[in-house]
């Protein structure tokens, strides 16, 4: 398995790739794992990827390899500079478990989609050099996890969110 780190539009991605067969790979991005089959690998000559080539609405420029020269176009300020708001504001909101005290997350024990019981260990928070087990306040399904191992959290930072019932 190899670990690759890429910067896409100033966002960093860590991608782990494990080969399964010649053209099949298991890819882990963040907490999600994908099985990727590379079905076609064609040489299109010396075509360059131009900024005008857009898949979606926003002009997001992606350097696929070093040979393709990419010129950055001035994008609308908000889209280009503002990183995706991954964290909800302090307090979280409905169905969100927040950190009871400042500290460092040592271990996250759940991932999105997990069914959890009340009191089940969700994360381990190191506060004042003490390992505190954070339990789930109620049974339910995890929708999103906002923290990773080694991340420092403040009081009231969201840890994870329940799926809406």
């Amino acid at each position: 398995m190899r670990r690759y780190k890429l910067d896409i539009s100033d966002r960093e991605f860590v991608v782990d790739v494990q080969e399964i067969a010649a053209d099949r790979f298991a890819v882990v991005v963040g907490d999600e794992s994908y099985e990727v089959t590379l079905s076609s690998d064609e040489n299109l000559g010396e075509a360059t990827i131009t900024p005008g080539f857009q898949a979606g609405a926003a002009p997001r420029v992606i350097a696929v390899n070093t040979a393709a020269r990419v010129t950055q176009v001035p994008a609308p300020a908000a889209a280009a500079t503002a990183p995706a708001p991954r964290k909800p504001a302090a307090g979280g909101g409905k169905g969100t478990l927040t950190a009871p005290m400042p500290g460092v997350i040592l271990e996250v024990s759940v991932k999105p989609g997990d069914q959890i019981e009340r009191g089940q260990q969700v994360a381990v928070l190191d506060a004042m050099k003490m390992h505190n087990v954070i339990g789930a306040p109620r049974a339910g399904t995890v929708a999103e996890v906002y923290v990773t191992d080694g991340e420092s959290v403040d009081h009231g930072d969201a840890i994870f969110k329940y799926m809406e019932d």
Partner: peptide, 23 residues
């Protein structure tokens, strides 16, 4: 100001790119 993130077949385009480059 915040447009919908571009998607390819329901998957974020940057994610697809990341996966492609990595593979």
């Amino acid at each position: 100001q915040v447009p919908e993130p571009p998607t390819v077949n329901g998957m974020p385009a940057d994610l697809v790119a990341a996966i492609l480059v990595a593979t």
